[in-house]
Amino acid sequence: MAEDDPLIARFLGGSLTGAGFTVTHVGDGESALEALKQQSYGCVILDLNMPKLDGYGVVEAMRQQAKTQSTPVLILSLRSQENDIIRAFDLGADDYVSKPFSPLEVISRIRRLMVRANQLQSRG
């Protein structure tokens, strides 16, 4: 989860942990890419407005690397304009949720993204 707002990070992080996920939290885009180099993740949650590198930059970079090419990415952003959403999907995002969000809905979407990714992977 790359999110620079500590409240949202705590809010969603707590809900995810409560739902059984193990969460790594970073506060900017560069740290997100760094974390993705260190380890593999089942899903990546990205805020768009972040210091250093924004969410668009992260998803774009992820899609160019073999290791993270098919890792599910969910964008969580305050931006809810059509062009922001389209740009995110064009760059390779798999899902988009506008803030304020329901953590339960986000968890549900993440579960679905992960199941789908696993199915695709097992089909090779």
Binding site: L7, L78, K99, P100
Partner: peptide
């Protein structure tokens, strides 16, 4: 603007 943007996010999230 950046601070206001963050504030919008967290205040919206807590209703």
């Amino acid at each position: 603007a950046m601070a206001a943007h963050s504030m919008r996010g967290s205040s919206g999230q807590v209703g």
